[in-house]
Design a binder for these strands. Sequence first.
DNA 1: GATAATAATGCAAATCATTAGCATTTAGAT
DNA 2: ATCTAAATGCTAATGATTTGCATTATTATC
Lengths: 140, 140
Amino acid sequence: MIDLVYIAILKANRLRPTTVRLAVLSVMSDYEDGTHFTIEKISDDLINRGVRKSIGSIYRTLKEFEDSGIVIRHQFDSIGTVYESNTGSDHDHTVCVVCGKIREFYKTEFDSLRKEVVSESKGRLIKHTQTLYVVCESCL
Amino acid sequence: MIDLVYIAILKANRLRPTTVRLAVLSVMSDYEDGTHFTIEKISDDLINRGVRKSIGSIYRTLKEFEDSGIVIRHQFDSIGTVYESNTGSDHDHTVCVVCGKIREFYKTEFDSLRKEVVSESKGRLIKHTQTLYVVCESCL
DNA sequence: GATAATAATGCAAATCATTAGCATTTAGAT
DNA sequence: ATCTAAATGCTAATGATTTGCATTATTATC
């Protein structure tokens, strides 16, 4: 059974492999890499699979996943809270203000600049967020 | 009377110079440049001046100011919604995850990189946000 | 300046997203 | 199979923000 992978992921994060957590991992695994999803989408997708889980438990689950580093949570202007699987890739986002499509981008140079900023202020960088709000090619 | 400046600002944005708007502009003008403030701080400061305005009106006023470009609204992780006067200066922020202090920084190079990203994707840049979550020098 | 038309305000109730309390169920260890 | 701790569902609570509406203040008109 495919669930073995999910069970392993959960165990690695000291989370019991319960039906809610397995179900959430399962719907997440159907998303393409780099997909950004909401709590509501998870809930809908579960319902579409005939799996009814309380919205409260989904919130709890996603928070646990976030704490464990299984997912990353983002807050975008006029879009709200979205999650993505944490693939470990370092990237920032563009958000199309017309269609709402979220895309990822990466440029090493940003990192060096950020390090400069932080070292100039003698602080320590914990994390960063950068989002470019754009009108994307297809919406232009 | 000092209010003439505020009245001019409001008129320039087609907003009637009402007591709430003038009072909010007035408390804002007491803040140092680059200060980030919450709705609650505005409300408290109004109360400290003996001016009692409903929290709902303050929300409405700040939204109008945001729409007019008089203020800029930010959402920071674990801090929430804060505003700053819009001085027209282009800058990003560092937020100390220990003390919560918000500071501004600016580096031209970021802009060129962002332009690269957007032009590579053939989109148009509308705005951006970048926040570095740090432990600041004094908290280290 | 008085007055009509329009916008702003206060207040309370409504909303939205998220969290928490608690009784019940499930997973893991013995 | 049994015990203990954790997870779940449910509902109520929360916090931030918005809205409806009756009242009041501003602006435009006479």
